[in-house]
Amino acid sequence: MREIIFDTETTGFDPQTGDRLVEIGCIELVNRVPTGQTFHAYYNPQRPMPAAAEAVHGLSDIFLSDKQLFPAGVDALLEFLGDSPLVAHNAKFDFGFLNHELTLCGRTGISMTRMIDTVAMARTLHPGAKHSLDALCTRYGIDRSHRIKHGALLDAELLAQLYIELTGGRQIGLVLGIETERKANGLCSIATQARSHRPARAHSASSAELERHASFVAALDKPLWLDSGSSA
C-alpha cells in the first residue's frame, strides 16, 4: 500500500485571511517502509513573511523571492501525490493550506477522505499526553537532534518514523539471520557480526557416566516407574 507523509510551512495560521503555503515536503511509503522517493518544493507567497512565522521555519522574504509560484509546480506535486492516502500531523491545517492553493490556481481540492491525522492517532493511543511532533518523537525515541528549525521535508521524515511507530513499529532491532539486513529506504541497515562455524559438541554419555547412573538407580527404594499401580 502506497501512502504519502507530508508537511507544510506557511506564512501563518489561516489561508482564509491571506496566509500562503511556502514549502511542502513529501515522503513516499510503501507498506509502511520509506522508498527513498520524496518531493520537496519552496513557493514564493507573493506577500511579506511575518517575523513570527520566519522565527519558526527560517524562510525569509529574500530566500523565497526567487522561488516558483505554486501554480508553476502544481502538476509535479499532484503527480507525486497521486491518489494515495495523505498522512500529516494536525492534518486539517496542512490540508487547509494545500487545498486553498489548489483552489487559487483552479484545481480541485484533495478529498478529506484521504486524510490520515497522526495527532488524532496519538490522542487515541496516549490520552492526556503531549501530542506535538517533538513530544512524540521523544516518547518513541526518534532522533530529532538535527531539527533546529521547522522544515517541511525534515518534519515529514520525522513524521514518517512516528507514523510507523504509531501503526505498530518496524521492530528494527529484530534480526533473524546473520546476513546484513538493509531497509528499503536506504537509511537504516542492521548487520549481525559474522560467526565462525563451531562443530557440535559431544552429547552422548560416557561409560563412567552410565555406570554412575546405573548405581544411582539401583540404590533407589521403590522407584515410581517400577510401581505396578496397585490400588490404595
Rank of each mutant, 00 (worst) to 15 (best):
Arg2Met: 03
Asp7Trp: 09
Glu9His: 07
Glu9Asn: 09
Thr10His: 05
Thr10Gln: 03
Gly18Arg: 11
Asp19Val: 04
Asp19Ala: 08
Arg20Tyr: 07
Val30His: 12
Arg32Asn: 15
Val33Ile: 15
Thr35Pro: 11
Gly36Arg: 10
Gly36Thr: 13
Thr38Phe: 04
His40Ala: 05
Tyr43Phe: 15
Asn44Gln: 13
Gln46Arg: 14
Ala51Met: 08
Ala51Phe: 05
Glu54Val: 10
Ala55Val: 07
Leu59Ala: 13
Leu59Asn: 09
Phe63Ala: 11
Leu64Phe: 10
Leu64Asp: 11
Leu64Cys: 09
Ser65Met: 05
Lys67Asn: 00
Pro71Ser: 04
Ala72Lys: 02
Ala72Asn: 05
Val74Cys: 12
Leu77Gly: 06
Glu79Gly: 02
Phe80Trp: 02
Leu81Lys: 00
Gly82Leu: 02
Pro85Asp: 08
Leu86Phe: 04
Val87Gly: 05
Ala88Tyr: 03
His89Ile: 12
Asn90Gln: 03
Ala91Leu: 10
Ala91Asp: 02
Lys92Leu: 14
Lys92Met: 12
Lys92Val: 14
Asp94Gln: 10
Phe95Ile: 13
Leu98Lys: 03
Asn99Phe: 05
Thr103Ser: 07
Cys105Glu: 07
Gly109Glu: 07
Gly109Ala: 03
Arg114Glu: 01
Asp117Val: 09
Asp117Gly: 03
Thr118Ala: 06
Thr118Trp: 04
Thr118Phe: 05
Val119Asn: 01
Met121Leu: 11
Ala122Arg: 07
Leu125His: 10
His126Cys: 00
Pro127Cys: 02
Leu133Val: 06
Leu133Gln: 05
Asp134Ala: 12
Ala135Tyr: 03
Ala135Phe: 00
Tyr140Pro: 07
Gly141Met: 00
Ser145Phe: 04
His146Pro: 00
His146Ser: 04
Arg147Met: 08
Lys149Leu: 12
Lys149Phe: 13
Lys149Glu: 04
His150Leu: 05
Gly151Asp: 11
Ala156Gly: 00
Leu159His: 08
Ala160Gly: 13
Tyr163Arg: 12
Ile164Thr: 02
Glu165Asn: 15
Leu166Lys: 12
Thr167Met: 12
Gly169Ile: 15
Arg170Gly: 13
Ile172His: 14
Leu174Thr: 15
Leu174Arg: 15
Val175Leu: 15
Gly177Ile: 04
Gly177Trp: 07
Gly177Arg: 11
Ile178Gln: 14
Glu181Thr: 13
Asn185Asp: 15
Asn185Val: 02
Gly186Ile: 05
Leu187Asp: 09
Thr192Ser: 10
Thr192Tyr: 04
Ala194Arg: 10
Ala194Gln: 09
Arg195Asp: 07
Arg195Cys: 08
His197Phe: 14
Ala202Tyr: 10
His203Tyr: 12
Ala208Tyr: 10
Leu210Trp: 09
Arg212Gly: 01
Ala214His: 14
Lys222Ile: 00
Pro223Phe: 03
Leu224His: 02
Ser230Pro: 03
Ser231Cys: 09
Ala232Glu: 06
